[in-house]
Nucleic acid binder design. Structure first.
Ligand SMILES: [Zn+2]
Length: 277
DNA sequence: CGTATTTGACCTGCGC
DNA sequence: GCGCAGGTCAAATACG
């Protein structure tokens, strides 16, 4: 039986993005036709936590890291994470309710819905393919990174819908909440970016980052993101998993987040699992 | 010494 | 039934 899956796609130099959870690696396989191996992790935050995740790097664009979460956490996540969870939950609900009348659509094997959220440069896409329905939150950042708002603001997410009350949240998508989520994700992206840049400009002595005047901003954003990031990812997974997986279906949720997509070409449609790709 | 990672063996579902 | 591909286990190893 398949469980809900949350796939986060982001740019990262690090072998694994920090998501606030502890993971124990239990396997690694070479994806066929992909030079980059796929790593399997288990959550060790709590004993018996069924959550697993697998990390794989995009074959074409090594800078893109695909992290796929599966299962629901057995244990509470950090408070902030919960907040994020709420946010994301709302967002996901919105997605779901937007593409189809209800999450029931996800159970329908034939269903093929696609919803695009016109949120900045980010896109959320729900689509069903193959055996498992797929919710794809495609957040593709425009070429210009570090365009984020002031990094100072935390995420006092005005979430009104707790992660648990997913059924009710469906009716009120709370756009602002969603945008907030996206915002956080932006910061998240910022984090990845900054890492990118750091390692990038540490080789070239003078070659500053392409974005002038934003280094400090970057750092701040990165810092904020680092703080936020964990919550984001973990909560995201938790939230979506709970909403969808918590129902009766076992759809496949994919949050596709590509930051600093200088070339949107690398945004290949990741449907369920990066099989051969 | 306890715990995390590595890595090949093993298991299983699926297509031919 | 066989072979392949994707996942998982677990013994050995690395780490601190
Ligand atoms: Zn967990």
């Amino acid at each position: 039986m398949r469980k809900a899956r949350v796939s986060v796609r982001a740019r990262s130099e690090a072998p694994m993005i920090t998501d606030g959870c502890q993971w124990r690696k239990y396997g690694q396989k070479m994806a066929k036709g992909n030079p980059c191996p796929r790593a399997y992790y288990r959550c060790t935050m709590a004993v018996g936590c069924p959550v697993r995740k697998q990390v794989q790097r995009c074959a074409e664009d090594r800078t893109i890291l695909i992290t796929t979460y599966e299962g629901t956490h057995n244990h509470p996540l950090p408070p902030a994470a919960m907040a994020m969870a709420s946010t994301t939950s709302a967002a996901a609900n919105m997605l779901l309710s937007g593409s189809m009348s209800s999450a029931d659509g996800l159970m329908n094997p034939n269903f093929l819905a696609r919803t695009i959220l016109p949120c900045s440069s980010n896109m959320a896409t729900i689509s069903a393919s193959a055996p498992f329905p797929t919710v794809t939150l495609d957040l593709t950042h425009t070429p210009s990174p570090l365009q984020f708002q002031r990094p100072t603001s935390q995420f006092p997410v005005p979430f009104a819908a707790p992660a648990q009350s997913f059924p009710s949240a469906q009716t009120s998508p709370l756009p602002q909440v969603f945008s907030q989520a996206l915002y956080n994700q932006s910061k998240f992206s910022g984090l990845q970016l900054s890492q990118d840049m750091e390692s990038a400009h540490q080789a070239p002595p003078i070659l500053q980052q392409p974005q002038p005047a934003s280094l400090a901003d970057t750092v701040s954003a990165a810092t904020a993101a680092i703080t936020a990031d964990p919550n984001f990812t973990a909560a995201l997974a938790a939230a979506i998993t709970s909403i969808i997986g918590g129902g009766s279906a076992h759809p496949n949720t994919t949050i596709n987040s590509t930051a600093n997509a200088t070339n949107s070409s690398n945004t290949n449609k990741i449907s369920s699992f990066p099989t051969g790709n």
